[in-house]
Design a protein around this nucleic acid. Structure first.
Length: 222
DNA sequence: TCCTGATCATCT
DNA sequence: AGATGATCAGGA
């Protein structure tokens, strides 16, 4: 559909072009059929936005706009502009993590510059009628950076010390570690309580909804 | 198999 | 109602 945007300004222009449109209108422009609901197509909205904005598609562990260093995230919000879900960041490394530092981590790198595209996504609204909001670029300020780093270091320390199976979603103030897999039977390698190799459920880092709510508040005011 | 795109569904 | 753990689809 779209070529990659040449620069940030061009990307911002594209976002401005689609603000206020419904997902149905956007899909029509792309000559795509929207599923009736997201139950079996949870990634549809994100992929539609990638297509329209010219993100490099695919499942590479890279920013969506590598040349711009920008990560694209759709943000499902209710009619008050509050996030309806947490935001997935990346998978969590569970082995060979000794000595890994915050500034070299995928979390830090992916979150250094994020383009959030709010989408009105209350369950009662049919997918095609859901409206795209005003997109905004976000980079963590000093305080946000500190919170993220603190949570990340705490979670990674637990992983290194074999505490992976004690980590719950409630750990962390703004960043959480939760399952990220096809189902609860999937296993991957990790470090056990006595330092031995174990198999455990793959995990991903997520931004808590309360944290993205504060980003929205910073952007749009209360 | 792992990572991308996330939301679903249940529990508290 | 908000949060947590579970789940779905597709590409490399």
């Amino acid at each position: 559909m779209s070529q990659p945007p040449k620069n940030i300004e061009e990307l911002a222009e594209r976002c401005a072009m689609i603000a206020g449109l419904t997902l149905g209108q956007l899909a029509e422009q792309c000559q795509l059929q929207l599923p009736a609901n997201l139950q079996r197509d949870k990634g549809t909205v994100g992929q539609l936005l990638e297509l329209v904005l010219g993100a490099s598609s695919g499942s590479k562990a890279e920013p969506d706009f590598p040349h711009l260093g920008v990560e694209l995230k759709t943000l499902p919000v209710d009619s008050f502009g509050k996030p309806l879900e947490s935001t997935y960041v990346c998978v969590a490394p569970l082995t060979d993590v000794a000595g890994l530092r915050w500034h070299d981590s995928w979390v830090c790198r992916k979150l250094s510059r994020v383009l959030f595209v709010p989408v009105l996504a209350e369950r009662g609204i049919p997918l095609a009628e859901r409206q795209i909001g005003t997109a905004f670029f976000w980079s963590p300020d000093t305080q946000e950076q500190a919170l993220l780093q603190q949570d990340w270091e705490e979670l990674m320390e637990l992983i290194v010390l074999g505490g992976i199976d004690r980590i719950k979603g409630a750990h962390g103030k703004v960043l959480q570690l939760r399952p990220k897999a096809a189902n609860s039977k999937v296993l991957t390698a990790a470090i056990g309580a006595d330092g031995q190799p174990i198999q455990t459920l793959p995990r991903g880092f997520y931004l808590k909804a309360s944290f993205t709510a504060s980003l929205l508040a910073r952007q749009f005011g209360d």
